[in-house]
Design a protein around this nucleic acid. Structure first.
Lengths: 184, 184
DNA sequence: ACACAATTTGAGTATACACTCCAAGTTGGA
DNA sequence: TCCAACTTGGAGTGTATACTCAAATTGTGT
């Protein structure tokens, strides 16, 4: 039999609660009790839908990582500016998800370790994407140089994003744009 | 009465065990049991010396943050190159401490939250230091521009350091030097 | 060698956590 | 309307954690 509407809504409430807790307090704050309290659900319901707490966290983290992707279809036509804009827009439009994205990569817990590997894999794909765009813009660039330059730019963007996660009064878009200007 | 030698040695063993665990496995791996096992000490001895686990962690983190400082005496004569070199050298010479430095800033646990505030405070001081050095090198630079530029460079360095903490095969010194070349 | 403070021991406490179980309630297709 | 599948409540389980304490042992100045 198909799933009931009420169950689907419960699942959505749990996901939303998990995202909020992760964004606001990181892994530390994201206990089962906190998730259930915020989602107005008892632990039995949680485990009726998810196999483990880690499951719910991974779902949220995966969503946040996918949300940063400017070109999920791999058209391969995006410019460096497009990619940088997408990165900046993500922090502007989805600050909660963006915080999860940063925190997930940083946390030391075992669920987040999975998230960490995921982050690294995603990072490497993104470096390739940036490098490709850089080569398209400047055909005299060697693949090696493009790779290094892409690591530089993404490193700077990640560092500034991390700075923002630490202190949200930091003007991330402004600094990110300046970094992109210098590293291209 | 003064402290006994044996007590001082025990304290040193505990600190060293804590640093190793933090560097290798982050907050997650740094349990009281793990610390005591590695330091060959029973929990009673631990609490004879430290008021709490957090105390020991804070000590280690503080040390690691101070270790990155190129000019503890605030002579104010260091160049941007000096500051960048000190940052890079720290990762080269004290990778274990460097990992603690990065992890401490990132972890979400409550002891590390203290470490996080500490990291941010330290970061702001360092931005000022970089900005001063930049103005000394280029007197036409306005204080605002120097501040922004310092945030850019430190953001890039932190981002690349974070990248290294995630994957230690990453060539941090090379990328850090390139970032410093472009952002000055 | 003595006194006594510093240190160590290790079993014990309290607490928080993720997770289980199943009886009772609800949903929605036939 | 019926009823099987789905969902829920909430007490309960097992485990890991940080931390305590009183008694035993060890180190050090005299």
């Amino acid at each position: 039999m198909a799933r009931y509407q009420v169950g689907i809504q419960t699942e959505a409430r749990i996901i939303e609660a998990t995202r909020g807790l992760l964004a606001e307090g990181g892994m530390e704050a994201t206990t089962l009790k906190a998730i259930c309290d915020r989602a107005q659900v008892r632990s039995g319901s949680f485990y009726n839908i998810f196999d483990s707490k880690e499951d719910a966290i991974i779902r949220v983290v995966r969503e946040s990582i996918e949300a940063v992707d400017p070109d999920p279809d791999r058209a391969g036509t995006d410019t460096v500016d497009d990619l940088v804009d997408a990165y900046i827009r993500f922090f502007d439009e989805e600050p909660k998800m963006a915080r999860v994205y940063v925190i997930a990569a940083l946390a030391g817990d075992s669920p987040a370790n999975g998230a960490r590997r995921r982050f690294l894999r995603h990072h490497k794909r993104r470096v390739e994407r940036f490098a490709d765009a850089m080569q398209r813009a400047d055909t005299s660039l060697t693949p090696e140089d493009a790779g290094v330059q892409a690591e530089l730019l993404l490193g700077a963007l990640d560092g500034l994003a991390f700075r923002w996660a630490l202190d949200q009064s930091f003007d991330f878009p402004k600094h990110a744009l300046l970094a992109a200007e210098r590293i291209t």
